[in-house]
Amino acid sequence: MPMYPAASIAVRAVEGTSASNGYANLFGGATLGSFADHLALLGSRGGSLSDAMCAAAVFGPGCVSTAAGAFQINKPTWTPMRRKPGLSDFSPASQDAGKKKLKRHADSGACYKM
C-alpha cells in the first residue's frame, strides 16, 4: 500500500475503502470488475439509493450513486478529470492522481467561485 498523508487515510476510513481492495469499492458494497475506466463510463447505472437518501439530495425516488473507488469519486467529478494527463483509466494510480488534482483545485478556491 502506498504512503498516504493523514487526510487521505481519513477520507478512505470514512468512505469505508481503507482495505487493500478499497480502490475497487462501489457505493453499496459491490466491487469494480475492471479498472479500465469509471464504472459509470463503462455503462453501469450505479448503486441504488433509498428514497429517503434521494429526497435528502433533492432527487426523486429511484436515484443512484456512481461513487466509486478509494475516494468514492462520482461520474460528474470524474468525467472532466479523466481528460487530464495521467488519468487514462480508473486504476489505483489514476484515483490517487485524481484525488491530488481535486485537492489542488479545492485549495485554489476555484471550486468555490461562481
Rank of each mutant, 00 (worst) to 15 (best):
R104E: 09
A7H: 15
P76K: 03
V58I: 03
S8W: 15
S91F: 06
I73H: 01
T77Y: 04
A36H: 07
D89F: 06
S44I: 04
K103A: 13
A68R: 03
T31E: 02
I73C: 05
K101A: 14
I9A: 05
L87P: 01
K101D: 09
A106N: 11
S18E: 12
A40D: 05
M53R: 08
G60Y: 01
T79K: 11
A19F: 04
H38W: 00
F27P: 00
K84H: 04
T31P: 00
L32Y: 01
P80Q: 07
L41V: 01
V58H: 10
S20P: 07
F90G: 01
L32V: 01
A106F: 11
L41H: 02
R104Q: 10
W78I: 02
A13P: 08
D107F: 08
L49P: 02
A36M: 04
S44Y: 14
G22Q: 07
A56Q: 10
D107Q: 15
L26E: 04
T79W: 01
P76R: 00
A10V: 09
R45M: 08
F90K: 05
R45C: 05
S18L: 09
S108C: 09
F59R: 11
A36V: 05
D51M: 10
A70I: 11
G43N: 00
P92Q: 04
K99F: 15
R45S: 10
A93D: 12
M1R: 11
A110L: 12
K75G: 03
G109V: 08
M53P: 01
I9E: 08
P2S: 12
A7R: 13
L41Y: 03
L39A: 09
S8H: 12
M1A: 09
P76G: 02
Y4T: 04
Y23A: 13
D51N: 15
L87D: 03
F90T: 03
T79S: 07
A57M: 12
Q95H: 06
H105W: 05
G28C: 03
M3A: 14
T17R: 12
A106C: 14
S20G: 13
